[in-house]
Simulated scan of single mutants.
Amino acid sequence: MLTNEHIIEAALDRITAGYVFPEKTAAIEAAIRPRIASGAYEGLGGPELCETVTRHLQEVCPDKHLRLLWTDEPQSLEPVDDDGGIAAFLTLLRAENQGVHRVERLDGNVGLIELRRIATATEGAAAIGAAMQLVAHSTALVLDLRACLGGAPDGAALWNSFFFPEDHDQVHLHDVYDRGTDSTRQYWTSPHLPGPRYADHRRRPVYVLTSEITFSGGEDVAYTLQAHGRAVVIGATTRGGAHPTARHAVSEHTLVTVPAARSISTVTGTNWEGVGVVPDIRVPADQALDQALEEALKAARP
């Protein structure tokens, strides 16, 4: 059985090897290793160990994606099975309808799509296209990301693509720099979509709802649509996690999440890391839908 010291050492090895900002890893080591030596982590149960180490990591490096996570489901420790958490994420998406939690037609012919996850562009295409088909003839659209916990960058780009006109040139949305390959991947709007676009000559209004829970891939959609002037963001400032992340098992029940890349907006030149997405209209998150419906009603008046 692995000791807490072995678990933390394995996590530090993963962070040192993969963290997108290698210049910060020395400070992380300096914050954690003296605590290991002093026995600060001895005797802690698994969930408490994860919570404590995460707190110490984020004290020195306030990156909300950098953390230890406890999982009740046993994880394989075989190197051949380490895929950065991709298989587990795809399984989760299939169980959660590719992140599409609710699609509804509200009073005034306002469409509502509530997302809890951002699926990958390939796995999620059919569900995403179906959701957009159901709101295709609405007069305004509310995209509710208040409980969205993140997801895939290519899926975020697919969602964003629906809000740019078909006759528009492809739009360069943002880039993602990956430390492991020392390369930058560009994300553009897609010319071919699995459902109807929500962008035409009528310029139907789009409102994106956010909360203090909205994170990662959900923030990507909100930030990008806001930066490109394609939606009005309503609600509360989001959590502020802009770094695509890999998950690695360091014990059967402990994962270390390592931000291995960073997003760079083509509009702002930066991202939402640490600051969150700041709404255009700030209201408490539980009032955001009512505010969006009020805005849609005003927009519909002649």
Rank of each mutant, 00 (worst) to 15 (best):
L57W: 12
L49H: 15
L66K: 09
V20D: 11
P79C: 01
I86T: 03
R33I: 15
D82P: 01
L93S: 04
P47E: 04
V80L: 00
G43S: 00
A40D: 15
A88C: 03
P74I: 03
E48K: 13
V53R: 08
T91D: 11
E29A: 00
Q58L: 06
E23G: 12
A27G: 11
E51L: 08
L49S: 12
Y19R: 08
G39W: 09
G18L: 09
E48F: 11
G85L: 00
Q58K: 06
G99H: 00
C50F: 07
L68E: 14
P47C: 00
E23Q: 11
A95R: 06
L44W: 15
C50K: 05
R33Q: 15
A87E: 11
G43H: 04
E59V: 02
L57S: 15
A88Q: 06
L93I: 01
L66Y: 11
L77K: 04
Q75R: 13
A26L: 13
Y19G: 13
H65E: 13
T54P: 10
L57Y: 12
L57T: 11
A31H: 13
V80P: 07
L44Y: 15
E73R: 05
A37C: 09
G99I: 03
A87H: 05
V20P: 12
L66N: 10
E78H: 08
H56C: 02
Q98I: 01
T25S: 13
G84Y: 02
I86R: 10
D72H: 02
L93W: 01
E59F: 07
N97G: 02
L68Q: 11
E29K: 05
E78T: 02
L69C: 06
P79S: 01
E59L: 00
L49I: 12
T52M: 05
C61F: 12
A87C: 05
R67I: 06
Y19L: 13
D72T: 03
G18N: 09
G39K: 07
I32S: 11
E29M: 03
V60Y: 12
F89E: 05
L92M: 05
C50M: 10
A95V: 01
D82T: 01
A95Q: 07
F21Y: 11
L90M: 03
E96D: 03
L68N: 12
Y19E: 15
D81N: 06
G84W: 03
F89Y: 09
I36H: 08
E59D: 05
S38P: 09
R67Q: 14
P34Y: 10
A30W: 08
A40K: 10
L92E: 05
H101D: 15
S38I: 01
A37P: 10
V100Q: 00
N97S: 06
V20F: 15
G85A: 03
V60T: 14
I28P: 14
E23K: 05
D82W: 00
E96H: 02
G18R: 06
A30Q: 15
A37I: 05
S38Y: 03
V100M: 02
E73G: 00
A37G: 09
L93V: 00
K24S: 14
F21C: 09
G43D: 06
T71W: 01
E48D: 06
R33H: 15
K24T: 06
I36E: 13
R102L: 08
E51S: 11
F89H: 04
I36V: 14
I32N: 10
D72G: 04
R35E: 13
